[in-house]
Amino acid sequence: MVVILGTPNADSSEIYAVTCSSGDPTWAGPLAGVALGLPVYHILESEVKQQIDPVLYEQQIGLSEMALDAASIIGAMLRARATPPAAK
């Protein structure tokens, strides 16, 4: 099982990623303190992109890829995945 996000910015990407892996970091929702341990990726990450038919990807994601701040979103995803569960 893997979670793929389409969140529009770094903050939301990080919150969603951490929520799905080690529990809601804002302690606002039902997943506060619940570690689902799911791997989480963003649709803009190259690891995901390279597995998708390029024509379809361009059609479905192309505009978002250009408009959204992909670098900061990817940075947030890397941070979320790198943080050890105990510290999250």
């Binding site: 893997v2 979670v3 939301s12 799911l38 649709i43």
Partner: peptide, 26 residues
């Protein structure tokens, strides 16, 4: 991370990428 054969939860956002678009891709 290999998508092929995996079960996927697609979580989109209206102004980012909507889940339908993620689902079609994966």
């Amino acid at each position: 991370m290999i998508l092929s054969g995996k079960k996927v939860i697609a979580l989109g956002e209206r102004d980012g990428v909507q889940s339908e678009a993620i689902a079609e891709c994966v």
